[in-house]
């Protein structure tokens, strides 16, 4: 990755859009401190983010993991709240919203991909950091679940939390996000609102009007 620079505003839903292999997960893992960046800096209100302040500021929800497979969903949510000093006040709403009630006593390792994804989202939503980064939050969910999860995420963002989501499905991103970062081959090729990006694309001779066309125009 190189020349990756963008900003995130408090309380917004920022979508990271890019084709397979663009570097979305790598970027997320560098931001979260899971991968070591060779260079670069993350600033919060103009001040560089230290490792300690990063753990207080953002929480990263990786894709395709099955944490604590032998433990039940109920325990995993309790652990998240206890270990990460999360939001117990949100537990009931999150469990209901993500329809986790029937799964609470199931070991995580026995869940389907979609069920696991909902548990992971619950874990992310229960953490208390002001910013949540979720890698492919809709991966494994069916259409109905995707819409329900999108609504939950919007409600969550409206309560003041900043969401930074890596989304493969452009239609989902267009429906949910306030602004977008377009990533291609490890580089940011555009950042802004849909209108702003469309205007920029038109100035380059494209007739793009929706996110899919904007994405194609920039990548």
């Amino acid at each position: 990755m190189a020349d990756v620079a963008f900003s995130i505003r408090p309380g917004e839903i920022l979508g990271l859009i890019g084709p397979n292999g663009a570097g979305k997960t790598t970027l997320f893992e560098c931001l979260a401190g899971v991968l070591p960046p060779t260079s670069g800096i993350i600033c919060l209100d103009g001040q560089p983010l230290t490792v300690r302040s990063r753990t207080r500021t953002l929480f990263y929800l990786p894709d395709a993991i099955a944490p604590w497979p032998a433990q039940t969903v109920r325990w995993a949510l309790d652990f998240t709240i206890g270990f990460f000093d999360g939001r117990r006040d949100l537990l009931g709403r999150v469990v209901d919203g993500l329809e986790l009630g029937p799964l609470l006593d199931s070991p995580i390792g026995t869940l389907s991909k979609g069920q696991r994804k909902r548990v992971l989202l619950a874990i992310g939503l229960l953490t208390s950091q002001p910013m949540l980064m979720a890698d492919e939050p809709f991966d494994g969910l069916d259409l109905r679940q995707t819409r329900e999860v999108a609504a939950i995420l919007q409600t969550h963002a409206r309560s003041g939390r900043t969401l930074f989501l890596s989304i493969h499905q452009i239609a989902d991103a267009a429906r949910l996000c306030d602004r977008f970062v377009l990533l291609s081959a490890g580089k940011v090729c555009g950042a802004g609102t849909l209108d702003g990006l469309a205007g920029l694309a038109r100035s380059k001779g494209s007739s793009a009007s929706n996110l899919e066309e904007v994405f194609l125009a920039f990548t």
């Binding site: 979260a32 401190g33 490792v51 300690r52 753990t55 990786p62 395709a64 993991i65 944490p67 270990f83």
Partner: peptide, 15 residues
Amino acid sequence: GDRQSGALKLELQHA
């Protein structure tokens, strides 16, 4: 086990 399951990526986000 934590690395295999991906739990390490979550747990390491605690200070």
